[in-house]
Design a binder for these strands. Structure first.
Lengths: 157, 157
DNA sequence: TGATATTGATCAGTATGCTGATCATCAGTA
DNA sequence: TACTGATGATCAGCATACTGATCAATATCA
């Protein structure tokens, strides 16, 4: 009888569950209130100022309907801004605020600490190997979810 | 600058996202409407007939408040039953129905196929290694989430 | 140009997952 | 036995994620 622990899907859920808990604990202890999802979105907005929501969703592989709520909360917290695009009036351009930049900078140690803690059972070589295998499996399965990863397209067509 | 792809937490989310999508696709194509979470719960009820919800939650590491809804849906679909326990009137004893057993049996090929698909980018040796590393990281982090894994306790105290 | 298809964003609805609270019941102890 | 703390279950509220729909705006092509 196949056990749950032989199912990669179950192990994936479990590891993710721990990863989220560790992230929230570390970031919370540092005095910030930001989820892993919000952090990834904010960091990606900072790295790609002015990108629209679809591009943001593609870069971090979020569903397009999820990104709306995530950006809502970033805006509500004053960490990012949503502006109407002049190039395409359907689109919203996203930029990080000063407050958002400050938060990102101050939160970095907690985020790095969280990444270390979730791998604390592994040697550093094993941690590297785990990440390599995850990246490889993800690359092969990228198109299988509704929210595949997409590179940013040049925005000045 | 650290990329999202260097973050185990991000990779975990991404892999899990693909795993869920693959599971739903395979199971759906086989004609069933069952989520990964519902599947794991149902299989665990079958393997431990009469267990209470807290024990079930512990065996598969679900939060206790999540299990209520999951069991609700299994019951609503006629796959499991919730009975008052005579040993402890606070507790609900869970049992699988005949329909539930039938469903589990018929769904197995789709579930196994899903597990294979989510690892399709890896050699079988790499797949094994990924599972080993996940299990190891999970074991070390078990207590860090609100819903750690717990063995079943003897129920006849 | 005008019809059609596509695209960016949002919404309603559903299913996980969590925090923190409440309620009933049980267990252990004074 | 009465009190106290622990436990099983549920609830309200919030944040991801998804399906499928809708709407406005853009792109494409006959």
């Amino acid at each position: 009888m196949k056990d749950n622990n032989d199912m990669p899907g179950h192990l994936a859920r479990r590891f993710q569950q721990i990863a989220v808990a560790v992230f929230l604990a570390e970031v919370g202890e540092a005095g910030f209130d930001l989820t892993p999802v919000q952090y990834a979105a904010l960091a990606t907005i900072k790295a790609n100022p002015g990108l629209d929501q679809i591009t943001l969703a593609g870069l971090i592989a979020y569903d397009r309907t999820t990104i709306t709520g995530v950006v809502d909360r970033l805006v509500q917290k004053g960490l990012a801004e949503r502006r109407a695009s002049r190039r395409d009036r359907r689109a919203r351009e996203l930029v990080i605020t000063d407050e958002g930049s400050r938060t990102l900078r101050k939160i970095t140690p907690a985020v790095e600490s969280a990444q270390a803690i979730m791998l604390r059972g592994l040697s550093s070589k094993e941690g590297e190997e785990l990440m390599r295998l995850l990246r490889k499996a993800i690359a092969a399965g990228n198109e299988l979810s509704r929210a595949p990863m997409r590179d940013a397209q040049a925005q000045d067509r």
